[in-house]
């Protein structure tokens, strides 16, 4: 069975993906202005400082927006539709948002601003992926 693409850890993103394999969300925090940033970037988006530390952040947030994908455009989506792709506003910082998939719920249960929490699920190739579920 075909799967969704496996993420390739690269220069700059390896600590994030390694964190996922340890069951945590690990993001970059700027050493100068203390802002978290996403996606991983080689320089601070807010102040252009280069020094940063990788830090475990809470795996909680709220649904910023979502789409219910019903038309499988990728071979990996066949048999998975309908599925819910979400943009999560993470609790760790007001402007920190990431894309993920919502699991353990029906599409009609999704509501705007619903609280969610991270749950890790292994890609068939072994890499753990940060997915989210509704906090009930």
């Amino acid at each position: 069975m075909s799967t969704f693409p496996r993420p390739v850890p690269e220069y700059g993103s390896e600590p994030f993906w390694a964190g996922c394999n340890e069951g945590v969300l690990r993001f970059q925090r700027c050493a100068a202005c203390q802002k978290l940033r996403w996606h991983p970037a080689p320089i601070c988006t807010y102040c252009q400082a280069e020094d940063c530390a990788w830090e475990t952040i809470p795996g909680t947030g709220r649904i910023h927006t979502w789409t219910v994908i019903t038309h499988p455009v990728h071979p990996g989506a066949v048999g998975k539709v309908p599925y819910v792709v979400v943009e999560i506003a993470l609790d760790a910082q007001s402007d920190l948002r990431m894309i993920s998939r919502l699991v353990e719920c029906e599409p009609d249960e999704v509501t705007m601003a619903a609280p969610v929490e991270v749950v890790f699920e292994a890609h068939p190739d072994g890499q753990q992926l940060p997915l989210f579920r509704l906090r009930r």
Binding site: R6, P7, I69, L129
Partner: peptide, 26 residues
């Protein structure tokens, strides 16, 4: 309308495609 059918995702796409987000419409 078709997705890239690669089985790996790198760069910015690695933060979208593994979750099933591929096409411009989505």
């Amino acid at each position: 309308g078709q997705a890239m059918v690669a089985d790996t995702a790198a760069g910015p796409m690695s933060y979208l495609a593994p979750y099933g987000l591929f096409s411009p419409a989505q």
